[in-house]
Structure formats: C-alpha cells, structure tokens
C-alpha cells in the first residue's frame, strides 16, 4: 500500500461523503444523537460513582463490647475485624469520646456538660468505629462482627452511599441498553449510507475490477467514508456537551454544594472529558468501521 493510494482513498472517501451528503448527514446526526445521550449517561454514572466514593469514606459501623470485656478480648476483636479486606480502618472510641460525640451531634450546650460532669452514662459504651472501603460489603461485615466473642451489638450507620450505589448500577444498566440500541440504529444508518455510495459508484467499481484494482483499493474509500462519518458523529456531540457539562458542574457546585455534607460535588470538566472523549471517538470510529465492513462484505463481491 503506497502513500499516494492512501491519499487517493482519503480523497475519494471525502468526495463520497459530499456526493451522498443527505445520507451522510442522517448518519452523522444519528451518531450525534446517540452519543449525546451516551454523554449524559456518562456524566450521571461517573458523577454518581464519584459521589459514592466520597460517601463511602464516611460509611462506618459501630461495634459495642460486652460489659466487662477484658482488654485482651477487646484487642482481639480489633485484630479480627482488621483481618477483613473490606475494612479500611478501625478506630477505638472511649466512653469520654462517645459522650463528646453525642454532645456535638445533638447540639448540647454547657448544661449537658454540667449534668454529666461526674458521671458518664456511656461508661460501658466504649466501641470501635469500623470504616469500610467497599460499601457493598457492609452487611457481610456486620454479620461477621456479630459472631465475634465479646461483641454486644453492632450498629450500621445510615447508608446513603449504599443507596447511591444501587441507583448508580440501575442507571448503568438502563444506559447500556439504550446505548446498545442507539449504536445498532447508527450502524444501520452508516450501512445505508455506504450502500448508497456503492450503488452510485457501481460503474466505477466494475471498471476498477476489470482493470486490475485490488480488493483493498476498491474498498478503502468506503472505509474512509464510514470512519469519517463515525468520527464526525463523535466530534459534534463532544463540542455540544462540553459547555453544557461546564454549566451543570457550576450549577451543582453553587446551588447544591452543601447537600450531603458537602459530598455532592461533580467531577471537573477536564477530568470527565479526559475520560469521555477517547471513548466517544472510539465508539464513533468503531460504528463507522463496523457498519462499513458489514456492508462491503454484503455488497461488493470479492474479485
């Protein structure tokens, strides 16, 4: 394959897009629509996953000991909990710290401190706070800890992260189904565009065959056409989504920044697009190439 042949195929591919401009526009439009939808789902899933990650750092379970449990038993509980892979950290909370936390969480004032100056009602409520690195493992961890010797009770924290995680998975499934459907439609439209190009150039293809063109020489311009359509179909939504996402991110930061204890924060534009642009271009080019190859296989007999 010589460079001039590549240049020739490229030129022919571009010409063909122009010649069948209505079909080309329809195919580019469908890919654009599909990828805009993909982009929105991508924003949702990426940001939900980001929020879940942030919330997960706060997911913890509290482990209370049997009254009178010896230091050895308490230390043993810690060792066994730390042996679990899903455990990120185990922190000991003394009765005094527990009282202080209660006071802070319940906005108690000086009167509360005065009342419990000499007596700590949580004297027998020292505990471990266990932080997880995988929120999905919380239930299994709890049931494990409950079976340990010296454990009186285990309490789950309110699990916002878990709910987010479930929602994120559901969005992911719906997103995948819709995208698969749209990619199917886009591939069909590209295939249609290439079919039209083949019909328009049927005479030229016949001449090429008769004068000894290789199979690649005949097919390459169509492949260029399909890949270019896919590429353009991916570039357009990237251009449309970039400013939109920037505004959404700004809105969330400004209006919802304090929700969920400051954890509701969207990923920066650069980070999202750094991930999304290569995926979108790969999908666009992939749809173009696959749609074209399927059509060429059906429509142009080899030699």
């Amino acid at each position: 394959m010589k460079l001039r042949t590549l240049v020739y195929s490229g030129k022919q591919g571009v010409k063909s897009i122009y010649r069948n401009r209505l079909f080309s526009l329809a195919a580019i439009g469908t890919i654009t629509a599909s990828l805009i939808l993909f982009g929105f789902f991508f924003f949702i899933t990426e940001n939900l996953s980001h929020i879940v990650d942030r919330l997960q750092t706060e997911v913890a379970v509290s482990v209370f000991f049997e009254p009178g449990a010896s230091d050895e038993v308490v230390a043993n509980i810690k060792t066994q909990i730390e042996s679990r892979a899903e455990v990120a950290e185990v922190v000991y909370i003394s009765p005094e710290e527990a009282l202080e936390i209660y006071k802070e969480n319940n906005n108690q004032g000086e009167e509360f401190s005065e009342t419990f100056k000499d007596v700590n009602p949580l004297e027998e409520y020292d505990s471990y706070t266990v932080y997880l690195n995988d929120v999905d493992m919380q239930e299994s961890l709890v049931s494990y800890i409950e079976r340990l010797e010296g454990v009186r009770t285990v309490k789950n924290n309110e699990n916002v992260a878990k709910n987010f995680s479930v929602f994120n998975s559901a969005v992911g499934y719906v997103c995948t189904a819709i995208i698969v459907l749209l990619i199917g439609i886009a591939t069909f439209l590209i295939s249609n565009t290439i079919s039209t190009g083949i019909s328009v150039r049927a005479g030229e293809i016949e001449i090429m065959k008769n004068i000894g063109a290789t199979d690649f020489f005949i097919r390459a311009p169509f492949l260029v056409e399909g890949i270019l359509i896919g590429f353009l179909g991916a570039l357009v939504p990237i251009g449309i989504l970039y400013p939109i996402y920037g505004r959404i991110e700004g809105f969330v930061a400004e209006k919802l920044g304090n929700t969920l204890g400051g954890k509701l924060e969207f990923l920066p534009v650069g980070e999202v697009f750094g991930k999304m642009v290569p995926i979108m271009l790969a999908i666009g080019v992939g749809i173009g190439a696959i749609g074209t190859m399927v059509t060429l296989r059906k429509k142009i007999r080899r030699y």
Binding site: K209, N210, I211, G212, A213, T214, D215, R302, Y303
Partner: peptide, 14 residues
C-alpha cells in the same frame, strides 16, 4: 489465488 486476480487483469485490457 484470489489475491493474484488483479495482477491477471492488469495483463488483459478490456
């Protein structure tokens, strides 16, 4: 072989 067919056709003007 089918990949040799173009070479054959280059020897035959039609």
């Amino acid at each position: 072989h089918r990949t040799s067919i173009p070479k054959l056709r280059r020897k035959i003007g039609v």
